[in-house]
Amino acid sequence: MTAQRQEFDVIDREAAEWVDRMNRPLHDAEVAAEFDRWIMGDPRHVESYARHQALWQSGSLRSALEVAEAAPDDFGTFEDEAVPNWAGQAWKQFAGFAAVALCLVVVLSMGARTLVSESSYAAARGTSREVVLPDGSKVRMSGGTRMDVRITPWSREVALQNGEAFFDVAHEKVRTFSVNAGDSRVTVLGTAFDIDLVDSQTRVVRVYRGLVSVDAGAGRQWRLPAGNGIEVGGGRVRSLGDVRGDHPGWIDGWFDADDTSVQQLVQRINRGSDLPVVLADPGLGQLLVTGRFQTSDPEMVLEALAAIHDLQWRKEKARYVLSH
């Protein structure tokens, strides 16, 4: 994790250096070639470059610098104060916590243990399942998904062990709802979102209502509003800005692939299919596809994959095989 963090730091530093260099009027051929090599070297490079360039060119930075230039005195003496706009918010939150604390005192004296609920849920492979949690939140679990749920008077926590689940969280003002998915953690008050544990490293979060906060560890945090998604894994981050509708397509048996690996698509099929799809060559899993696939009909998807990447598929007794 620390190594990953350091890697990110190096990329960010290089990106910031390139932003400065490329914003100068003239570059010689050697520098130009070096920049192109750097951009092509790693997909994270272009993302970090874009983020820093966006900041450098932004109106917000220009305004902030104009303020700083106009009022140098104010800027000279720095006092460690909270940004005023947030003070009100912080107070409200504190009042909320105080209210909970008060409830807690009452609850504890009544015996809190009875109010803590812990349960585990699993959906068998091939079928999805909807559960209603004690707080009223609804969770639609895809086939083969397992999760543990712990609800206390002061917290709502889910540990997603594997698979994919769509959370429609009952809104509460104070008690947050968190989902732990390995190294990533999603925290909300009341929203609708989907988490997919693609493999041991990759998590995909899609937001359908409200705002969620995603914490991928190593100091990386994002706030995603409805209509957005993010894919975190293997040291890289990809934003998915095309989340549409009010629930994920897999609930209706569809999957929207957007430069998605065949591996991921096959995994989707296998969650809902009686016969699993296997790849004759694991390398096939790296191929990318884009489009809308009806994962509830494996044969149709295989047909489409075969056509897109010039592959073959066959049905055996207990499985489908996709090969060159």
Partner: peptide, 15 residues
Amino acid sequence: LLDLRAALDRAGVDF
């Protein structure tokens, strides 16, 4: 530039 970008990320500003 790095400090400014990190400050935005830390504050969770969707920028």
